[in-house]
Simulated scan of single mutants.
Amino acid sequence: MISKVGQIMLYVNNQDEAVSFWTEKLNFAVISEENNGQGMRWIEIAPKKGAETSIILHNKAIVAKMSPELNLAAPSLMFFTENLENLHKELSSKRIKVGDIVNMPSGKVFNFADNEGNYFAVMEKINNF
């Protein structure tokens, strides 16, 4: 039986730029980095505070060669924050492309784009999560 989501694979064109985006602009931490010595490198990142799930940054071109049948599109991810307005202002000040804050039945939400144009969403969750 599956008990939780462990890792999410994110296939990127430039791993170093992706690491910089997530760590410098979103304050994620690098958890680990592996390299098999044959071109396959993966970097595990996660929010610095309380993350149970991490993101693995893979080189899209290398994975496409190894497994051409895989769907390498960015996953649709929803992140949570306790203060949506502050995060929206912070990301905007860092020149990250952000969408408008929208009121949804489940709470306030906005989207943002990474340095490769992949969009992700953030929802305000005030409860302990």
Score class of each variant (00 low, 15 high):
L77A: 01
S92A: 14
K65Y: 10
K65P: 05
I126A: 08
D16H: 09
L91N: 09
N103P: 07
K125P: 00
N118Y: 12
E82Y: 03
N14K: 09
E69Q: 15
V19D: 03
K97I: 13
N71M: 06
P75H: 04
V5R: 00
L87D: 08
I31M: 11
I31W: 03
I8E: 00
F120I: 02
W42E: 06
E17H: 08
N128M: 02
F110M: 12
N13H: 06
N111V: 03
L26G: 00
N27L: 04
A73Y: 10
N86Y: 12
N13P: 01
Q7A: 12
P68E: 05
V98Q: 14
D100Y: 09
F112S: 03
I62V: 15
A51Q: 08
I2Q: 05
E34I: 06
S54E: 03
M9A: 15
S106I: 09
V122C: 09
T23L: 01
I8W: 02
S54W: 07
L91V: 07
I96M: 09
N118G: 07
L84M: 09
F28D: 01
T23G: 02
M66H: 15
S106W: 12
N86C: 10
W42T: 04
A46M: 05
F21H: 02
E17T: 06
A29H: 11
S32E: 15
F80E: 08
A64C: 11
N59M: 07
Q38Y: 14
D114F: 03
T23H: 01
M66L: 15
F112N: 04
E44K: 14
F110G: 08
K60E: 10
K94Y: 08
M9L: 13
H88I: 10
N128A: 09
K97N: 10
N71R: 09
E33T: 14
K108Y: 07
D16F: 02
M40I: 14
V12D: 05
